[in-house]
Amino acid sequence: MTSTTAAAVSSSSSSLSSSGGNINNSSSVYKKEKSIQMKNSASALYNNLSVLCVPERSLTYMAVVHRSSVCMASWCILPSRVLLVLTSLRGIQMYESDGSIMVYWHALEIPETPTARAIFARGIAAVGGHYICVGTSSGCILVFDVPVKGTNITLSEELGQHTEAITSIAAECSMRKDCVPDLVTADDSGVLCVWKSGEEFTLLHKLPAYGCSCTSVALWDGIVAAGYGSGQIRVYDGATGALAAEANAHARWINVLDVAPESGRLLSGAEDSFVRVWKLGRAADTGLIEIEHRHSECVTDVQISGAKFCDAQGRAFAVTGYDLCEIIRYVLVA
């Protein structure tokens, strides 16, 4: 693996630009805590870390994918239950949250005529109270209707606006009935689709690509954040589809974005060995979307492949990277 150094990008050298929104620089301090050792290393996959926090039991579960037989692992938190969802080259598996019982299996359709394109599923999100959405290599979004309990999970809809492989899916809980987006999907070409869930999913906006893959997306308070292979983060108004701000956040390919739902903190990790914390919000006087850079951390000589907040406020986050046999945890101290 090519060595990278902290000199590649520093917090002061991140270039930011605005398209009607506001961009500020502030600071927070996170302190490194004791690492969690793993038996195997993390694979070089997008968004290769999932975290489930169980405050009432003082437990935190973490999942990292090793090797390419599994594409992604993620916990889907629905109002009535929590499921662990795995995607692979063969299909989609759903388990009870502790992984003890498989409650559903969906096999991917293999074309009769062999193609050069690999068949896989990638991108997982829970949305709309009782749906789980999973992306596929064909660009289709599979929407599964999940009951309160039991195994009677059904494929209720297939969303077909993408033509390239899905890279990432993000969702947030929205109880409003107007056109507030609660789902965003991204593909290898860089196209984003913004949706509103319901008995039938409605496409609100299709945001065009601009020259590179969109590897990860996050959604918070109607604000869409997208990370790209160029190292840029683009921030959109989900209600209008307008570009609000752009940050030249990393020197290399961004592999992961995550958002803390109760604070709007945004986490980004990339192949430049840096993980950065940002703050999303809206100006009280103008309503313009704002993004602030808060913190940078260098994980020396590690290509970041996974990063997740460990709580809803974003007071702690965990990081892992390609060929790294540990999960590194950071806690907010100021």
Rank of each mutant, 00 (worst) to 15 (best):
V9S: 11
L16K: 15
S17Q: 12
S17T: 14
S17I: 10
S17L: 09
G21Y: 06
N22L: 12
I23K: 03
I23S: 09
N24S: 14
N25P: 00
Y30D: 03
K31A: 10
E33Q: 14
K34D: 15
S35M: 09
Q37D: 03
N40K: 13
N47K: 00
L49H: 04
S50G: 10
V54T: 14
S58K: 14
L59V: 12
Y61V: 09
M62P: 05
S68L: 14
S68R: 13
S69F: 08
I77N: 08
L78Y: 09
V85Q: 04
V85K: 03
T87R: 01
S88F: 01
R90C: 07
Y95E: 05
S97W: 12
S97H: 12
D98T: 09
D98R: 03
S100M: 01
Y104K: 05
W105R: 13
A107Y: 08
I110F: 08
E112V: 11
R117T: 11
A118P: 06
R122H: 15
A125S: 11
Y131L: 01
C133P: 04
G135W: 04
C140F: 14
C140S: 14
I141G: 03
L142C: 01
V143F: 03
G150I: 02
T151F: 05
I153G: 01
T154F: 03
E158H: 00
G160Q: 15
Q161V: 00
H162E: 03
I166F: 04
T167E: 10
T167F: 04
D178P: 06
D178H: 06
V180T: 13
L183N: 07
T185I: 04
T185R: 00
T185M: 01
D187G: 04
L192Q: 07
V194A: 09
K196P: 02
S197Q: 09
G198E: 04
G198V: 01
E200W: 10
T202H: 12
L203F: 04
L203P: 06
K206N: 07
K206T: 12
L207R: 05
A209E: 14
A209K: 13
Y210R: 10
Y210A: 11
G211N: 08
T215P: 00
S216R: 05
A218I: 10
D221N: 15
V224L: 13
Y228S: 14
G231V: 04
I233K: 06
Y236I: 03
Y236F: 15
G241K: 03
L243S: 09
E246P: 02
N248E: 11
A249R: 08
H250C: 10
H250E: 08
R252A: 13
W253L: 11
I254M: 06
I254D: 01
V256R: 01
D258M: 06
D258P: 01
P261E: 01
P261M: 00
G264C: 04
G269C: 02
G269A: 05
A270H: 10
V275K: 00
V275G: 01
W278N: 02
G281R: 02
G281E: 12
A283K: 15
D285Q: 13
L288M: 09
E290K: 00
E292L: 10
R294T: 06
T300G: 07
T300L: 12
D301T: 08
S305F: 02
K308W: 06
C310T: 13
A312H: 12
A312Y: 08
Q313S: 00
G314L: 09
F317T: 07
A318V: 09
T320H: 07
Y322H: 11
L324I: 07
I328V: 12
I328T: 11
L332A: 15
